[in-house]
Design a protein around this nucleic acid. Structure first.
Lengths: 229, 229
DNA sequence: CACCTTCGTTGCACGGTGTGCAATATTTCG
DNA sequence: CGAAATATTGCACACCGTGCAACGAAGGTG
């Protein structure tokens, strides 16, 4: 129950509401313990090479309890992806509404890259390359985020935007971010100290391409400066 | 073995190479029979509400043979999605290389909507909305297509384009197409005779938004004319 | 504190999944 | 035809995902 392999992850977003009882705190701890156990196992023996029983045992819960929290072993590995996207949406929500939309989007994602445990995301992306089930779980995670972001963006854009516009825009933005993260995960060693900056640059590049309608195939990935801060 | 519920699907693309022996033809038939059986069941009892054994029985093969062809029940339902995207890539490959890239992309997708069995795609999209596993399988299908299209596009653009540019562009194009198909599936009755045109219009709208960098949230979804033909 | 209510955890059972393996049936080719 | 190549099938087995009922730990009330 009290298993902590990676002390700091994205999960503490849910710990903000201060008056949290033992019950809720226990659930948060359990969820974290399971997610951490799953991630540890995925790192050590490889994704898809371990069973739910192993996760449960390592997390100190029963097999049945695992399924009370997650639908599958792969789902336990998308907690971090979910957290990243949830955080990005939250950051986006705090952007001033009079700022140009594109700048808000870019800043929401680039500032989110300064979160903790970024290197774990790289590992997850690389793992998804060799495990179809994990890839599907991650794609689903992005898909869920897409739906939430559409809702958030509709509030900002109002009734001017059609549903098709919203879906196409959000889908494209997330595709570009995904592409940036994949490129970053594939071409960055996990021990690079400045990997956060490398990711920021790639996200900015991809989103700038999007803003410009992909009119310049020869756009230099790293030749753009970051806006704001 | 000789089960044919839906006579015409996308699958006959693989039947072009004429000198096909008995062995190969049998495999194609079996694959089709399984896919059709799965689709029939999904339509009649709903996705996720039937077992692999039922598919196998309806297709006239053993349970074990089903797994020789597909990983899961949901995978058998992505055959049509795979076919659509494969066809789009093939059509794109036949576009003249001196045509503007954007026009080629739009034509590749809009012309692909004239394929047979289009209404089945609408049904699949709607089913994915109520079944997470099916949704994941479909997302995976689009993901695989993305990888193939990147390869095809790299050949056309040459070394000018960075990997990030390619991935972001293809991902965005597919996201827009996906958004168009979802919007179409959600807002079009399956019995509409002109549903193909409605889909074409939506794809053109979404891709036009993409080309313009999503600069106009108030873009009229249906106010654009189709290029070519 | 005692009591009761609420709710999270656990074990159990059961049907379904996905795959390795060996036997069998079918196609291909000399 | 006969042998090699390959597809299908049954079987076994580990694992998955969930309903259910029993148990136990918070939380509230007097």
């Amino acid at each position: 129950m009290q298993y902590f392999a990676y002390s700091g992850t994205v999960l503490e977003m849910t710990e903000n509401a201060e008056p949290v009882g033992r019950r809720e705190q226990n659930k948060i701890d359990t969820r974290r313990a399971i997610a951490d156990a799953a991630f540890d196992l995925a790192l050590s023996v490889g994704p898809g090479s371990f069973t739910v029983d192993q996760i449960a045992e390592r997390a100190g819960v029963s097999r049945r309890t695992f399924f009370n929290y997650f639908h599958s072993a792969e789902d336990a590995l998308t907690v971090r992806t979910d957290g990243f996207l949830e955080l990005a949406l939250e950051v986006f929500g705090r952007m001033p509404h009079d700022e140009p939309l594109f700048d808000s989007i870019v800043r929401a994602f680039t500032e989110t890259t300064r979160m903790e445990g970024l290197s774990q995301h790289g590992a997850l992306f690389r793992m998804a390359g060799t495990n179809p089930d994990l890839l599907r779980a991650q794609l689903h995670s992005w898909e869920r985020a897409e739906a939430r972001i559409v809702v958030g963006l509709r509030g900002r854009l109002g009734a001017d935007a059609s549903e098709l516009y919203l879906a196409a825009l959000v889908g494209s933005v997330l595709s570009c971010t995904k592409a940036a993260m994949r490129d970053w995960a594939a071409n960055t060693s996990q021990s690079a100290g400045d990997s956060g900056l490398q990711l920021e640059g790639r996200i900015l590049s991809a989103l700038t391409m999007l803003r410009d309608g992909f009119s310049d195939p020869a756009a230099e990935p790293d030749a753009v400066a970051l806006p704001g801060a």
